[in-house]
Design a protein around this nucleic acid. Structure first.
Length: 358
DNA sequence: AAGCCGGGGGT
DNA sequence: ACCCCAGGCTT
């Protein structure tokens, strides 16, 4: 074990670490666990407001376990990676039903829960119970890759194994709680990705990358994968009698379990589909869709049909099911993806400005 | 091993 | 624009 590394780091953390994060208060396995899931691939500043709302609504494992998934997704909407929310909910139910509401206190026990991998399990155990377990997140990878000038792209398995070994060697038997927080804080506030603040770093005299004057070369990155071309499709916002037509997406894939307005195009989950269910012929539909005029299709009551383009970064078309007219005052109670939320807000705003009832 | 999953912040 | 973020799951 590299005792010196931990001691220096803990000493640094005493003065320069973060001590006021919401999940650092009233530390319980549940509170730390929820924070760790939210923080996966998500920055602290983004998480904080979501975390506060979430914990106010679900203060205990039991309350989360007994809540419907819809409610969990609604609180999660806007945060991204919605699979995290589904697995969080499933894990809470497992803990509630199979562990009498107590989180496992072992790596194996925690990793048996959906959504918990080695890093999250170690974070829960070290931060909550001061167990000597090792994390390897983006911060730790960066710190260690620089400290040891580790060559090779951090995405590769071999480099990751090397970093795991360093990380384990550095983890102290005592004070793992403070150490875990400390190494994340160092990565987040000092050993940052760009423009690291090496002049105040406790490892300035030990960091291989700094001594080689090549901080920017570590961690090495694999060449970027080519991204899917961004595709876009039309979502149609049908608002009728103060309700908006929405459909829920299947649990797998992008925006899993979330709600959004129907797409115009033909196919499963399209507006075509929905209208056909309501007795309109295909010929009717083609004509009216082309003209973007649905006033006579649904009702002669107030109806505003507003097509909007929602841009997604994925090439898959939405497949939805479970059509539902959602009351406009209630739409925020549903899990809605961020781009969709923006359009709905804009629509409501417009209707207020133009003083047109919808 | 590679792909998938989101939205935002920093540069 | 591009990179990255308190990763894990699926294929």
């Amino acid at each position: 074990m590299n005792t010196s590394f931990a001691k220096q780091l803990i000493h640094w953390h005493l003065k320069h670490g973060r001590h006021d994060l919401p999940w650092q208060k009233n530390k319980t396995a549940y509170r730390v666990y929820v924070s760790e899931i939210m923080l996966q691939q998500t920055q602290v500043s983004t998480v904080i407001p979501y975390y506060e709302r979430f914990m106010a609504t679900f203060p205990s494992v039991k309350s989360l376990a007994l809540a419907p998934l819809d409610e969990v997704l609604a609180l999660w909407s806007g945060l991204g990676y919605y699979g995290r929310a589904r697995r969080l909910h499933a894990a809470a139910q497992q803990v509630h039903q199979q562990c009498r509401g107590r989180f496992p206190k072992t790596m194996e026990g925690l990793m048996a829960l959906p959504g918990i991998g080695p890093s999250t399990a170690a974070a829960v155990l070290s931060l909550t119970y001061n167990q000597s377990e090792t994390i390897l997140d983006g911060n730790v990878k960066r710190v260690l890759a620089r400290y040891h000038a580790v060559p090779g792209p951090v995405e590769s398995t071999s480099t990751r194994n090397i970093l795991w070994e360093y990380a384990k060697k550095n983890t102290p038997k005592e004070d793992a709680q403070i150490y875990t927080q400390a190494i994340m804080d160092l990565g987040a506030t000092c050993c940052t990705r760009t423009q690291p603040n090496c002049t105040v770093c406790p490892f300035q005299n030990n960091c291989q990358a700094y001594l080689l004057n090549s901080i920017d070369d570590f961690p090495e990155r694999a060449p970027p994968k080519k991204k899917n071309p961004e595709h876009q499709w039309e979502l149609i916002f049908l608002i009728h009698d103060n309700h908006i037509l929405m459909q829920q997406r299947p649990l797998s894939g992008i925006w899993g379990g979330l709600w959004h307005p129907p797409q115009i195009e033909d196919g499963e989950g399209s507006l075509h589909d929905w209208l056909r269910l309501h007795g309109y012929t295909k010929k009717d539909l083609s004509k009216q869709i082309k003209e973007k005029s649905f006033r006579h299709l649904l009702s002669h009551k107030t109806l505003i049909m507003t097509p909007h383009i929602v841009l997604l970064s994925q090439a898959k078309k939405p497949k939805g099911h479970a059509w539902k007219w959602v009351s406009l005052p209630d739409w925020q109670e549903y899990g809605i993806a961020k781009p969709v939320e923006r359009v709905i807000k804009q629509l409501l705003h417009q209707s207020i400005n133009t003083r047109r009832p919808i």
